[in-house]
């Protein structure tokens, strides 16, 4: 099949750019650990309230782990538990979340924390919260009439102040 010389240049340039993008995200994901939230842990969604750690939603300090805090979140129509959380700036936090009913979203505005919560599955994400501020969490997957009222607030604060 004959390709015009310029088309060869273009396809080479185009495929080259795509390969570059893939290398950048691939290194970020597999070498630096910036993977999208992909936990495969499961749970009985009807028993969420009775199972550790979801029986006690909230922020807990942990030791001996790669992160400083665990933030356990339980979503249900149309709220998150806890509704508000205060996090010392600079801490590495593992967010562990699930839903008690339908699919919910979990998007923390202004951050890369953005994951789906699906019944029967636990969603997890680890990040270092290095910027002070108030971050609104919204449900970004349609879950019913009250979907747009579903929210939570992160307050990343400087504890020394």
């Amino acid at each position: 099949m004959h390709l015009h010389r310029y088309e060869k240049w273009w396809i080479t340039f185009g495929i080259g750019s795509l390969v570059l993008f893939l290398i950048i995200v691939g290194i970020g994901a597999f070498h630096q650990g910036h993977q999208p939230p992909s936990s495969v842990k499961t749970i009985n969604y009807e028993q969420v309230d009775k199972v550790t750690p979801f029986n006690e939603p909230g922020l807990t300090k942990v030791s001996g782990k790669d992160w400083d805090y665990e933030l356990v979140v339980v979503a249900s129509a149309f709220m998150y538990m806890p509704a508000e959380v205060e996090i010392p700036v600079g801490s590495t936090v593992k967010i562990i979340a699930t839903t008690k009913d339908v699919v919910h979203g979990y998007g923390v505005t202004g951050t890369n924390i953005n994951m789906m919560l699906e019944p029967g599955y636990i969603s997890e994400y680890v990040t270092t919260m290095d910027k002070i501020g108030e971050y609104l969490v919204v449900c970004n997957e349609y879950c019913g009439t009250g979907h747009h009222t579903m929210k939570m607030m992160y307050k990343v604060v400087d504890v020394n102040e």
Binding site: T109, G110, E134, Y135, L136, V138, C139, H147, H148
Partner: peptide
């Protein structure tokens, strides 16, 4: 960060 598929909401007048 504005979500898709959501009705009008100020999310309790959150700044963001």
């Amino acid at each position: 960060g504005a979500p898709r598929r959501s009705s009008y909401s100020t999310y309790g007048d959150a700044a963001q």
